[in-house]
Computed example of a mutant assay.
Amino acid sequence: MIELASVIRDLREELEQAVVAAEGETLRFELGTIELELSVALERTGHAGAKVRFWVVESGADATVNATSTQLIKLALRPTLQGSLNPPFVSGRAVHLEQ
């Protein structure tokens, strides 16, 4: 399983790479709302002051975990550039060896 925060951090990094790749391009795409649908497992420790953690269940995860303790969540993220209310622009050009 992967922490939900890691999934969002990795998504942010990928989007930042796409924004950089768009600089100087003639054809650019405005980045709209991003919808993520994830299967998550909840982990809560038993001590005082404990936090609840969300783990994203990877495909191919153990079926018993998947069947007993996961929830499907949807996140709608609206990306903006720091210091701006405008959405970023990304290019449509693929990175070398990207599939």
Results as ranks from 00 to 15, higher is better:
45 T>D: 12
35 E>K: 14
92 G>S: 12
23 E>T: 11
6 S>F: 03
35 E>Q: 15
16 E>N: 08
7 V>L: 08
14 E>K: 08
43 E>R: 13
57 V>E: 06
58 E>L: 07
98 E>T: 02
38 L>N: 05
7 V>S: 01
33 T>G: 11
37 E>T: 15
57 V>Q: 03
4 L>D: 03
10 D>A: 04
73 I>M: 04
37 E>Y: 05
57 V>A: 09
34 I>Y: 05
49 G>Y: 02
96 H>Q: 09
85 L>E: 13
29 F>Q: 06
58 E>G: 03
9 R>F: 01
56 V>G: 02
41 A>T: 00
6 S>R: 12
74 K>V: 03
27 L>C: 06
15 L>T: 06
60 G>W: 00
94 A>F: 02
12 R>T: 11
83 G>M: 08
55 W>S: 07
33 T>E: 09
82 Q>F: 13
42 L>F: 11
86 N>G: 07
79 P>T: 10
76 A>V: 03
11 L>N: 01
13 E>I: 12
57 V>F: 02
84 S>A: 01
6 S>K: 09
35 E>A: 15
75 L>A: 07
77 L>E: 00
79 P>D: 10
29 F>E: 05
30 E>T: 15
29 F>M: 03
85 L>W: 06
23 E>P: 12
56 V>C: 08
30 E>V: 12
31 L>K: 02
4 L>G: 07
84 S>I: 01
74 K>G: 01
83 G>C: 13
37 E>I: 03
6 S>H: 13
66 N>A: 12
62 D>S: 03
79 P>F: 05
11 L>Q: 04
44 R>L: 14
72 L>F: 08
